[in-house]
Design a protein around this nucleic acid. Structure first.
Lengths: 191, 191
DNA sequence: GCAATTCTATACTTATAAGTACAGAATAAC
DNA sequence: GTTATTCTGTACTTATAAGTATAGAATTGC
């Protein structure tokens, strides 16, 4: 019943994501986020809690974005093979060239030994579990499209590994053609 | 001509590696390294320079260890396929279970946005380049052992991607059987 | 044994960054 | 318009950690 918040929390999360993604959790100071967003620290603390809580919100948002997209792409009609190819190739802009340098926020966080917070680990685990579930479900459903002996569960995990590898190596700014070639070769396992 | 150093620098690098590997560069304070090693800060600074320089030494050592092992394994006589399978399976203890939690020091460092130091990037790039070179050289040499149309260069890179993915996902402590299954499936690309 | 030199330990300085107190500004309800 | 309430901005406190000054200990060469 009094003065309303002067900013949209979602806008701030978006800005915080950019800063955290670029520099990592530890190396990002709240002062940098206040500078980038124009929101003073007390307002940030009031809206989101401490730095860890803010980062968790950012990471969850990031996860939700990718999961939403994955759901759409993997629910596509047509051959499972094509859906998964499209899913993998969709990451190319994010794991090659200039833009790929920052890698994947989730993997960057998972490989950061200092982020040993239970809440963060859970968020990341849940994300990976759900992604793999989406892949597995689709591969199981379309199992008939593959050769005899095809194992949808292992294949789903292998696709996850390839995805993680591409995002981890993204920091070396590989060429998008090279990434594409790897994806095409891996598609050979989906036969 | 005067008092000699009372510690073996190599021992300290070994201890520093453990600490850095567990907690990451940023989150590790020099006080933790002095506590773990028993060496006081001024001695560390005299021997290695500042924290970044110490970490670079640790990382280079780590890289050299893995490269040396990779050279031995990949130079093995017999089919290239087996040499590479052995190389990949050799990582299983380091990317599954309890011990796998810390992941790979090199990848952890590469995905740490705060370590934007040119020297570190170079060390990591050189490491990846040399590893891939070892794989590529072996695959090219034994090219005749594979199906027509086999591309050793792309395959070498794909193996690097799989390796990076396994080490990145190691933080979720996967089961070693699952890792093994992925490797076996990927071996299907080496035919 | 003595001197020169280099290492080591304590204790300090300094910088950075997380989190907060407090005063003042803005808004909704009446 | 007034008042109660909540937000915002400045400035502060506090903690942590990197890097260093300085004094004292240890070792080699003579």
């Amino acid at each position: 019943m009094a003065r309303p918040r002067s900013f949209d929390p979602d806008d701030v999360l978006e800005i915080a994501r950019q800063v955290f993604w670029q520099k990592g959790f530890q190396a990002t100071s709240l002062d940098e986020i206040t500078a980038a967003s124009g929101i003073a620290k007390p307002s940030l603390y009031a809206a989101f809690g401490d730095k860890h809580a803010l980062f968790l919100r950012v990471l969850d948002r990031y996860h939700d974005g990718i999961l939403g997209w994955a759901e759409r792409v993997l629910a596509q009609p047509g051959p499972a093979r094509e859906a998964i190819r499209q899913w993998l190739t969709g990451f190319i802009p994010y794991c090659s060239g200039e833009k790929g340098q920052r890698g994947c926020l989730s993997i960057n966080s998972a490989t950061d030994g200092s982020l040993d917070q239970a809440a963060l680990r859970k968020s990341i685990e849940r994300y990976n579990r759900r992604l793999e579930e989406l892949l597995r479900t689709r591969l199981r459903a379309d199992r008939a499209q593959f050769k005899k002996g095809f194992d949808p569960d292992i294949t789903a995990h292998t696709v996850m590994v390839v995805h993680a590898g591409l995002m981890a190596l993204a920091h070396q700014t590989p060429d998008s053609k090279q990434v594409k070639a790897v994806i095409e070769q891996v598609m050979g396992l989906l036969a």
